[in-house]
Simulated scan of single mutants.
Amino acid sequence: MPESSRRGLLFGAAAVSTGALLAACTSNEPKNARSDADTAPAADDKPGAPVTIGFAGPQADHGWLNAINENATSRAARYSDVTLEITEGSNDTAAQIGQVQTLINKKVDVLVVLPADGKALTQAGLQAMKAGIPVINLDRIFASPQAYRCWIGGDNYGMGLNAGRYIGERLKDKPDAKVVELAGMDNLELTQQRTRGFDDALKNYPNITKVARQAAEFTVESGQAKMAQLLQAQSAFDALWNHDDDQGVGALRAIAQAGRDEFLMVGGAGAKSAMDAIKADDGVLKATVLYPPTMAASAIDLARALGQNKGVGGMAELEIPASVTLYSAVVTKDNVDAYLPTGFS
């Protein structure tokens, strides 16, 4: 997803408390992954000291980004000891810096920030830390580790790796298999990481060749236009990896208009529309690789633990970890029912 506008094993959504949250990180395929909305804090997770959490998130101009904001607010509402001070989401770095400074001036106990631009917001993170307000840096990482107490986010390289492995296993017995890639915005590091992971996975399958790659812009319109170009240029291929389920809506339109169905498609992020299509199993879309927006719910759990001077259950340490990288689970027809409640619109 675009960094100005963006973004596994499922992590925060499967967590029922901060303790369960980090325990979930060790399992690759949870038996019962539930959305944050369907999950309550564990019975032994009793209210503690009051914590005011400041949340500076993105402008909700994309399904994934909207889900980030919803996961943060719904998770905070579950805790009687948490007060959430939330800013109006912004993709303008100057505006977001001002919002963070306002939260600092309000003397919140902990800050959770998903920066519009990690590098540009680094000074704001440093300012908060110097003011004695610990920062949970969500997804887009600040340029300095001194600007945050804990980073939690997705694994872009892992997304590509797992997409490539899934496609590789499906095509491993097909001679001279051909794959194409519908990427995100090429000027973003996250797009480059996803492509690198995908290419590295395909190195293990010498029978598979990536014959084309087209960059889109994480929008429905760009997905449709760029997919149409790929289809016109490639008369036949065996698999498509699309980096983002929002642009995948457009890609599927182009595929339907072209009347093509000779290949399998793998999406990215975990939109509900993609999961519905996977469950129906009546088209080319067979899987999606998660980049879970439930990381925002997990960030609230971590911020609460930090504000109450707690560690996390399942770990011996007295403190929360310095970083948490989420796993990019592959959702298929076989496990889609477990993940469907976490799909975002």
Results as ranks from 00 to 15, higher is better:
L103W: 00
N162I: 02
A15L: 00
L21R: 02
A322I: 01
D109Q: 09
I300M: 09
C150S: 11
Y79T: 01
R304D: 10
L65Q: 07
Q234C: 14
K203N: 13
G283D: 13
Q146G: 10
A77Q: 08
N32V: 10
A33V: 08
W64D: 02
D334M: 04
T209K: 15
L302I: 15
L171H: 09
T342D: 01
F263G: 11
G164N: 08
L306T: 15
V330F: 01
K203A: 14
G267W: 02
A215F: 14
A269W: 00
G250I: 09
D61G: 11
Q127L: 11
M129P: 03
G267Y: 06
V112E: 01
D92H: 00
D44P: 03
A296L: 05
A296W: 08
T52C: 05
A228E: 15
A303H: 11
Q257I: 04
G132D: 06
Q192N: 14
V312Q: 12
S273I: 10
T219Y: 08
D301L: 14
A33L: 05
P58N: 06
R140S: 09
I278E: 03
S27I: 11
I141R: 15
L121Q: 06
S144M: 02
A215H: 15
Y327N: 11
A143C: 00
T342A: 10
V180L: 09
E85C: 00
T294A: 14
R253M: 13
K130C: 00
A269H: 06
I255E: 05
A183E: 11
F55E: 00
A116W: 00
D117S: 12
P41C: 08
P50C: 05
V331D: 06
A14D: 10
S80N: 04
T219C: 07
I53Q: 03
A233K: 15
F218H: 11
M185E: 08
L240D: 09
N242A: 15
Y327C: 01
A120I: 00
E85S: 05
A299M: 05
D261R: 14
N105T: 12
N137F: 06
G168Q: 09
F142P: 02
V112R: 04
I97W: 01
M129Y: 08
D117R: 08
W151S: 05
A228Y: 05
I278S: 02
